[in-house]
Design a protein around this nucleic acid. Sequence first.
RNA 1: GCGAAAGUAGCUCAUUUGGUAGAGCACGACCUUGCCAAGGUCGGGGUGGCCGGUUCGAGCCCGGUCUUUCGCUCCA
Length: 490
Amino acid sequence: MANDTNRFQAIISHCKEYGFIFPSSEIYDGLQAVYDYGQMGAELKKNIKDYWWKSMTQLSDENIVGIDAAIFMHPTTWKASGHVDNFNDPMIDNKDSKKRYRVDHLIEGFAEEQSATGNEQLAKDTLTAMDALIAKDDFAGLKKLIEDNKIKCAISGTCNWTDIRQFNLMFSTEFGNTVSSDGEDNKIYLRPETAQGIFVNFLNVQKTGRMKIPFGIAQIGKAFRNEIVARQFVFRMREFEQMEMQFFIRPGTQKEWYEKWKSTRLDWHKSLGMPADKYKFHNHVKLAHYADAACDIEFEFPIGFKELEGIHSRTDFDLKQHQEYSKKKMQYFDNDVDPETGKPFGNYIPYVIETSIGLDRMFLAVMSQAYTEEDLSTEEKKDERVVLKFPAKLAPIKMAVLPLTKKDGLPEIAEKIIADCKSQFRCFYEEKDSIGKRYRRMDALGTPFCVTVDHQSKEDNTVTIRHRDSMEQERIPIDKLKEIVLNAIA
RNA sequence: GCGAAAGUAGCUCAUUUGGUAGAGCACGACCUUGCCAAGGUCGGGGUGGCCGGUUCGAGCCCGGUCUUUCGCUCCA
């Protein structure tokens, strides 16, 4: 475990040292749980995005289109989705044990205890009182309720509580250029999930795209959450990026589609060459208010198995809510004939299967899988290298071209190779330092191919190509280069 | 948010009772070498996280603050 912590630290350092990820606003001491992607990280992240987008909107067997909805949404969106009411949990701390509790959990725990010991009435009254107080945001009243019932901390056994505080899930900001006398008038949220941008556009896409159920809408975009503790590098950030796909289906078919998307998504991960034993499903026992089935695809990060992607059967909850709040029919007319009744399926609010993967978490998964420290020591000397064994298609730089010396016309040949390839994939030129040093630098960036131009190149138009993982080299004609790299990154 | 630890050059670290900072790597120039890091010479780079206090004098002592790490708590 201590070793894994070290490995995680090493990965974080490597990310910063080689231009993958920097702490945000670092010159001002950084901003907690916010990170910037650097010159290498931005490339890797973009390559992950492209791979996901293409797998959804182009290669999938299903009918899926992509959209790009705004981060700002009408405030009612978040009332409909339940984010305003369901995710603003009042919290309270016990001063002696320093434990923090969600107020509702604490009181519910007390009520359960009471009903287990036969005090059904007290349990019921307490819960009723709690619901009324929560609905009014009456924190003082809630605290009084806790104190009146002498609800104790399970750890310290004391009733020494702090005041109740509210933790806002959502970031809010001012919308519009005039200051309102009532701040609430202009209040607007930064979206805490991209999914709602898809739901509110369900009818637009379905109608303009003449989409027939089943079909999906995919989206990549930023989302914002005020985490209670935001830590562990890019694993849990306040500003993060999601890759979500909402798949609209006929009611009653959610079970089979849920299973199908579970396996489809796991296959996607494996298609990147990620080892299968690094993944496992974690089924949710306690379901969110909108789901009838939910699981996570967990990945074994250096900090243990953690959620990487969520697959949720969201029922018709979201569309139904939006139909209610917007007074617009969120329905689909299904002309297909139901074989059981011989009649069309007719009008219904579609059910939804959601696949939602954290882009930053995927970045971290790819990075931690790729990061390798290799001992290359021989009897004569100690040696080691750090190499990022990215799948070639995700690597920020695909090919480095290195003239063995910086004279005798070798740089010119190298430049020509780059000029010929750079429209197809990212190339990098380097003539400084010894060739071995340059190879190692490219290893540290995860560049799959290093091409070295030497004196023989001038005579027969061949170069050596060096493979990152095996460190093996082969001599090939210059005009074969592009094809080799393109094949590897296809 | 609570508790603990840490913050010295781009990176990794040193400066052992307080006397205004050093090394290796990295970086730049030149020379040399030329297929798997660490050849030579010269050079640039630090108001010691930030603010304040004690002191003739503080990187080192004290207080505050910010950030990070670890643990707890929470997790749609």
